[in-house]
Design a protein around this nucleic acid. Structure first.
Lengths: 348, 348
DNA sequence: GTTAGCACTCTTAAGTATCGAGTGCTAATA
DNA sequence: TATTAGCACTCGATACTTAAGAGTGCTAAC
């Protein structure tokens, strides 16, 4: 059987209606759908076909139809190939200059959740191919040093380390100059044994301190990798959708949302699949969802990039009947804004 | 009517049973309660009295009794005056040295939530009477300075500021020395106009930069005050308690838990009331709860102090029938641990 | 003062009847 | 041949009834 124009119209009408109401859609409802001038009986026949083709489902014998995962998929693919969306007020958020990316991301998550009425999730940028931009040791106590590192994108890390024997201010100054001249501009990966050995040689007496500092820097970076930087917001929005908010499900979902590890898995999965998509936007519907415990949901993800390998993932999680059109639009728009904002930041 | 020993025993038995089951408690149940050798009829009489006195409530005519807020209050006060509790494994958490208080707090919230099976909330320490411990400017770009400030308790803030005209390295060095010698050891309040004027004089040509830096420092501090530092964990634990987890209530509760402003209100309220308590531990039951939207819950709060005015609040939020004994014990214990940990840190 | 006994209340669960939205099928129609 | 009207049928949702059970309050006996 073929999916002709009329079937498509009807399928779209069914899905659209279902997205709004959340209730199974009957033939009469569609028959009254403005564009179509067909009786409910005709619609019934078509619906019967569509069901046979797997695009829609009957929850029980005498109910209307709801979209199947395949139906959603069809709908989403349609939109993906169509849309370029209106501009949201999210610009405002961008206009205020942001020094710390973390803050921006937190706010973004909030804005996304508020805008879409779904749950939003943003993974912090990975220390991927980032260049070290700046490193500084400061004495904050007789035998404590504060290590400040900063990488592309102005992401700043502080660690305090203990040194056995106090450094003189002069040595500290030299050490700082040495560290910066040796390490600045290198990616984390590029700071290899060769570089380290050379560095230690040059540090002379304080080789041991350098060792400690490097350890701590590496540690800070790794620790941060583990201390997953994932910002979430609007988890409670799921209560707006009855099909998700009944006790059992809501509980499981919210629990999942609290477990950053699981979310990290989701993001990893997304990044692996990225190849298959050109816009960088992906949609997982129902069973396509990579993580357990969210099989009743859909998630729309997008990768953002703040220049030079500093990249992360944004996700919108909602019910399967989420307003894909709006979400896809918002995300696409956001990507553009991020691009512009970062370009500006850079040229600034 | 008087609350004699037997009434107290029965009241306690009722509350204890209710804490476990969450179901109204009948006279027969209490009659079977080991310590008491009374028939259900006698218990009924006593229960009738207790109800008249306002300690327990009948949800409906032919149900058992549940504790009223007054009943809980009585129970909690009893415990408060009794307990000094067993040591939890929370020590482990303390033993690993923590450089950044924020991280500690985050972990603490998680540990508390996991331990108690309630929701936990920790407010970050306020910049209260804190002494500035360290300040440093670093050039990170041709016209960008990184300002690192650190106050007692090793809480570190980074801000990036733009300067109109680039500073020479030499000037920057001097400025750093000047800033540190002038400001270190002062509380935020002590950095007043007098200090600032003197500072600017000494800075000479770079008075303008100093101005900018101070603005940014103040801004950073204030911004942080607004950007409420509240860590929460275990919000989804409420699903473990049926009386909270039915749709409407759960939604409202979780929503409240997502709104850091409201939580901040709660904490402010707690800090105002602190005078009335000697241990620093307070319990709000049901309607006593200062914030709307949590009237069905109880919250146990405690103030922690990490030396010299660096203080914050810990809260455990759960159903009215929370296991007060355990929670109070855990918190009291935690306070001690924090004390020890911080003393060690300090003497280190 | 305590207890046994009993009638009474009220919730909960299970069973039953009814309603209505929606279907599938058939026969009539354009 | 495609569309439509008509109708019997299905099945979830809703409301109502009933029965069971837990628990009370009261009274009278111990």
């Amino acid at each position: 059987m073929e999916l002709d124009a009329r079937k498509v119209t009807i399928l779209k009408a069914i899905i659209k209606t279902y997205l709004e109401t959340g209730e199974p859609v009957g033939s009469r409802t569609i028959s009254k759908f403005s564009d179509l001038k067909l009786s409910s009986a005709t619609i019934r026949n078509e619906m019967s076909d569509l069901e046979e083709m797997g695009y829609i489902i009957q929850p029980h014998t005498s109910a209307g139809r709801i979209p199947s995962d395949k139906g959603y998929r069809f709908y989403v693919d349609q939109i993906l190939s169509e849309k370029d969306q209106e501009v949201t007020e999210m610009k405002e958020l961008m206009i205020q200059r942001v020094d710390r990316v973390e803050l921006l991301l937190k706010k973004l998550a909030q804005a996304l959740a508020a805008n879409t009425n779904y749950a939003a999730l943003i993974s912090g940028p990975q220390y991927h191919q980032n260049k070290l931009k700046f490193i500084q040791l400061s004495k904050v106590d007789v035998n404590k040093l504060l290590v400040v590192t900063m990488v592309e994108g102005n992401i700043i890390k502080n660690t305090i380390i203990d040194v056995k024997e106090p450094l003189r201010d002069e040595d500290l100054l030299n050490l700082n100059i040495l560290l910066n001249s040796s390490l600045t501009g290198l990616t984390i990966e590029e700071i290899n044994l060769g570089v380290i050995t050379r560095l230690k040689e040059q540090a002379g007496l304080h080789g041991q301190v350098v060792d400690l500092v490097l350890n701590e820097v590496a540690e800070a970076i790794r620790a941060d990798d583990e201390d997953l930087q994932i910002y979430t917001s609007g988890a409670t929005n799921i209560f707006k959708y009855p099909e998700l908010s009944d006790g059992e499900k809501a509980s499981r979902l919210l629990r999942t949302f609290e477990e950053k590890d699981v979310l990290q898995d989701l993001i990893d999965e997304v990044n692996q699949n990225e190849a298959g998509s050109d816009t960088g936007i992906q949609v997982y519907i129902g069973d396509e969802m990579p993580v357990q415990g969210m099989k009743d949901c859909s998630v729309v993800t997008a990768n953002y990039e703040l220049g030079e390998g500093l990249r992360g993932t944004i996700g919108i999680i909602g019910p399967k009947r989420m307003d894909y059109e709006k979400v896809l639009g918002t995300l696409k728009n956001l990507m553009t804004q991020l691009d512009i904002a970062f370009k500006k930041e850079k040229g600034d």
